[in-house]
Design a protein around this nucleic acid. Structure first.
Lengths: 159, 159
DNA sequence: GTTTGTGCAAATTTTTTGCATTACA
DNA sequence: TGTAATGCAAAAAATTTGCACAAAC
């Protein structure tokens, strides 16, 4: 699926969500969605705001916060908390569910998939009669500098 | 191990940590540790602060933040981020490693253990040569109100 | 006696809220 | 046209920082 197709698809999903929930289809909401699906990796509200101001869009922080909440509700965006008090977000449609390995030295975030997490989800939810909607698994550690030369920007990296 | 023994043990660990890292042994640091190990479950800095002020202790928020950082560093306290921008903490010495199921309706947090998470940790860390220090697995969902009557304080609970 | 740690308050940072105005339906 | 959504700025909430004073070592 091309980037353009993906944007079309998520826009349709969003339009449908807005219709079903009787929310208005404003240009601001679509520009936030479009911008989020133009970016790879994680982002926070402030950087998205600055990025959108630099470009063609005119949106307020309040609208970004509001729109992201809607996008999370219709599963087009995922929220992360990597241990700091700054919420990070990520587009999530048609992306393989993945979890994160966070390097405590360089703060870089790596992604990985492991199907076994679903078994754990099932067991744990059955244990208390939970109806699971999603999960968040973060593994913290130190990325091996030698094995990942260049992948990790250490503060004290040997130049 | 009794509560008193546990407090003695963690105090020794903390004393040793402070010695090794050449930090001073102040009464404030020990009272924060003592108070944390008197409380069950999760807590945030503000509630710990209020609780300590109500009781015998006289500590500032800044000191609590500072001390908790040291306690995290010596593995006596664990930090959690359950999706909100309020850091939650928990004593962690001699407590079985566990993960969390969070109810999106009532915000209640349930604990569970699953040894399979360690296999995932191993696989994921081997994948990128990570040296794992810890992990955080949060499963979000809706606790079954009927099956857990009384366990979950729903906002719209049927009275 | 040095120097780290503390308390307090001010500053920062991130998110939320109130309200007048705009614009979708 | 009625009402939800927006922008802005102020407020709130959580954490960090600066500095004078206290107290470990």
């Amino acid at each position: 699926m091309s980037v353009v197709d993906s944007k079309e698809t998520v826009k349709e999903i969003f339009i449908n969500y807005l219709k079903v929930h009787q929310h208005r289809k404003t240009p601001e909401r679509f520009s936030v969605l479009d911008e989020i699906y133009s970016v790879d990796g994680h982002f926070d509200v402030e950087s998205l705001y600055i990025q959108m101001r630099k470009k063609r869009y005119r949106v307020s922080r309040a609208t970004i916060y509001n729109t992201i909440e809607l996008l999370i509700d219709c599963n087009l965006v995922t929220k992360h908390q990597f241990g700091k008090n700054l919420a990070q977000f990520e587009k999530s449609h048609e992306f393989r569910q993945h979890d994160h390995l966070i390097c405590e030295d360089c703060q870089k975030v790596f992604e990985f998939c492991d199907p076994r997490i679903h078994q754990i989800e099932k067991t744990a939810s059955a244990f208390l009669g939970f109806e699971v909607t999603n999960h968040s698994l973060n593994i913290y550690g130190k990325c091996n500098r030698l094995a990942n030369e260049g992948a990790c920007e250490h503060k004290n990296k040997i130049k």
